[in-house]
Design a protein around this nucleic acid. Structure first.
Lengths: 203, 203
DNA sequence: CATAGTTTTAAATGGTTGTTTAAATTATTC
DNA sequence: GAATAATTTAAACAACCATTTAAAACTATG
């Protein structure tokens, strides 16, 4: 049976995701969510028992999304340089499509780390990728600098994600329009690729 | 006349700074601040008129602090490599001493960029440093890669600040204690220095 | 010590919060 | 199509929010 109209439960969840991502847990009220979903206030609790439960459900989905594509790319059977390039491209796209995601995750985890780490299976997946094997082989062969996965990954992620995290500051600092900023980001992207690859690959 | 005990106004401001940095504007109540300062609730409004006014005052101080030492270092009469190294060391120290600062600034600006940028004189100071001149000279002489200040600065800041922003994730991801994390951060620091300097300096 | 000014207090303000209730409406089942 | 279950609604709940009030306590000055 096809459903043209979204089910109420999903409508609320989607609306809540949008509002939570934009305003964070503390900045969001149950009434904000109901208004965004265009539904009665009581329904939030009817379907999800509490604001907290709804939030936790959404957070773990967003957190999984943050890692999922990364794991996919890390497992691709392509060369290291190409892989790093693709990782960086993917991160750029992610920051463009989901500009609120990273700051949301960082901020919520920062406020209460313990409550949010429950059954995170992405973690093991992230450590056991083909990329880790590639790195080890390259290091053994002397073509890749001796660098552990957990040191390399932040070097990649930070460069891309940070400039978007600090986008409002950059815009203000150098008097940029949104268009200017995207140009700036493109330039930055090439620097990042070049810098990381030339550091990683020996000779 | 010496004051052994802090004045009430300062006590409130200091307490508010601590709470705001930890929980953000939305997560902080006037009662939280009064409790932290060990004072009556009404005093917050007696001295600062409103929670919003108190917040804005604190935010602009924190934001200035975030840039102040950076500007100082950029104006030092030392070599580029040494300067980058010092910048990185400074950022590490800052993240250790004020672990809440960067995520606080990023998050508050992200939520409402316009309200927080009022009379930020640090911006011009940041663009007109001795470091900019050094870069231009190096580029002209062919010893430094053609890289604009606004592209280089994020490369430095991101690497350091991001790993601390993602500290809870790293700890969870690689099962680290706080001690383990500090060791990890030290290793990362050396990679960052080496990577940025070897990219920037030609030959 | 009286008085004027400043600081602190307990209590109350009106509004908003997350959540619940119980009735009304719609959908499903036999 | 009547009975049962699931969904939606308006209204209410106590708790808490930022802020204000007006009286009390304190300090300084003459």
């Amino acid at each position: 049976m096809k459903c043209i109209t979204e089910k109420s439960e999903d409508k609320i969840k989607d609306a809540a995701r949008r509002v939570f991502l934009k305003k964070g847990f503390d900045g969001t009220t149950s009434r904000d969510i109901a208004r965004e979903a265009d539904m009665n206030i009581a329904l939030t609790n009817y379907y999800f028992r509490s604001k907290e439960k709804l939030f936790l459900e959404i957070f773990s989905e967003v957190f999984a999304q943050y890692f999922s594509n990364t794991i996919e790319i890390l497992n691709k059977k392509i060369g290291i340089k190409e892989k790093i390039s693709e990782m960086i491209e993917h991160d750029f796209d992610m920051m463009k499509n989901e500009p609120d995601m990273v700051i949301f995750i960082m901020n919520e985890i920062h406020k209460e780390p313990d409550r949010l780490f429950t059954g995170m299976s992405h973690f093991k997946q992230l450590q056991e990728t083909y990329f880790t094997k590639q790195l080890e082989e390259g290091i053994a062969a002397g073509t890749i600098r001796d660098l552990r996965m957990e040191n390399l990954l932040p070097l990649i992620k930070c460069s891309v994600e940070f400039i978007y995290l600090a986008k409002p500051i950059h815009k203000k600092l150098y008097n940029m329009t949104d268009e200017d900023f995207e140009k700036f980001a493109e330039t930055q992207k090439e620097h990042i690729k070049e810098m990381i690859c030339s550091y990683l690959v020996i000779g």
